[in-house]
């Protein structure tokens, strides 16, 4: 194993395929995640987001392809590798009799043998409880926490070992707007202050736009788009819509060159124009365009295969 440098991707996947029996969930996935990046995996239900992330976590074996996470194959990587990776799991009813403080102390303990002076592990439990906003609930029974509080505890459990790479699968599903905002701040803080590399999946486009340095759109078992929210939006033809009234008639025209088009409009019609409005294409438009474009009629949309 050679020492990782900054140039080495944290996650590197080439030609990853996954099939359950005769059903192909992932047909060919190639992706890279660089150190310190926040990458969001976006895609419709059944696109293979969860499968992808579970392969990278080492919880599932791909049918084919090369997978490297922190320089190792997650399927065979050992406990020292495990100590550098954080996984945020969705809790449900586990540890109901425990308290957040007790659980974090217990689970955090496993990282102690992997502590180094540069990277002391695990985080201090009280500090972490404060960071995720559970300070005042530290000694309550977990079974009595609200849904949002539980999810914050899940995040705390995922990052207790000060991971270099953090996986989050639909972290904000079921959050109220306040909890969602708090969570976004937490992700920013992890990424900015700790330099944690983060890979998350979501359905929520606004969330992807807000959090991610880079967005990957997964559809039909492969990556159909890769870039920042801006880049992706620019890539779809007609990134803006110009609407105007001319007399009593309403016009709509999609264009990539808003300034040029509007100048021309003024030159041609001048004073006749009323109600001019320019609407930039949203990430949502882009996403729908990308997903539709990749759609092959024969590709059956799969339900998330739960096995």
């Amino acid at each position: 194993m050679r020492a990782a440098t900054d140039a080495d991707p944290v996650v590197s996947v080439r030609g990853m395929r996954m099939s359950y029996g005769s059903v192909d969930v992932l047909t060919r996935v190639d992706l890279d995640v660089r150190p310190g990046e926040v990458v969001c995996l976006l895609g419709p239900n059944g696109a293979g987001k969860t499968t992808t992330i579970e392969i990278l976590e080492g919880f599932r074996l791909p049918s084919a392809g090369q997978v490297r996470v922190l320089g190792e194959d997650p399927a065979t990587a050992g406990d020292a590798w495990r100590a550098r990776v954080g996984v945020v799991l969705q809790s449900w009813r586990d540890h109901a009799r425990w308290t957040p403080r007790r659980l974090l102390t217990s689970l955090g303990g496993y990282f102690l043998p992997y502590s180094t002076p540069e990277c002391p592990r695990p985080y201090d439990v009280d500090h972490l409880l404060g960071t995720v906003g559970l300070g005042e609930h530290a000694d309550r029974r977990i079974g009595t926490l609200s849904g949002g509080q539980r999810r914050r505890l899940d995040v705390a459990v995922g990052i207790i070992g000060r991971p270099e790479l953090l996986f989050l699968d639909e972290p904000t599903a079921g959050f109220d707007p306040q909890a969602r905002r708090d969570f976004h701040e937490l992700v920013h803080r992890l990424s900015d202050l700790e330099g944690t590399t983060i890979l998350l999946t979501t359905h929520d486009l606004a969330e992807a736009e807000k959090l991610a340095d880079r967005i990957l759109i997964l559809d039909g078992g492969r990556i159909v788009a890769d870039g920042s929210a801006d880049e992706l939006t620019r890539r779809v033809a007609g990134t803006a819509e110009v609407r105007w009234m001319q007399g009593s008639e309403r016009f709509v025209h999609p264009t990539a060159d808003v300034v040029g088009f509007v100048r021309q409009l003024f030159e041609q019609h001048g004073d006749e124009l009323t109600d001019l409005e320019v609407r930039k294409a949203s990430l949502e438009d882009t996403y729908l365009a990308m997903v539709q474009r990749s759609e092959v009629p024969t590709t059956a949309r799969l339900q998330e295969v739960a096995r």
Partner: peptide, 20 residues
Amino acid sequence: MEREDGTLLRHKALPHGMQG
């Protein structure tokens, strides 16, 4: 039960977690 409620998975995500 703990296979289903995620207790075990939490430990699987830890170094030497299953032994613990």
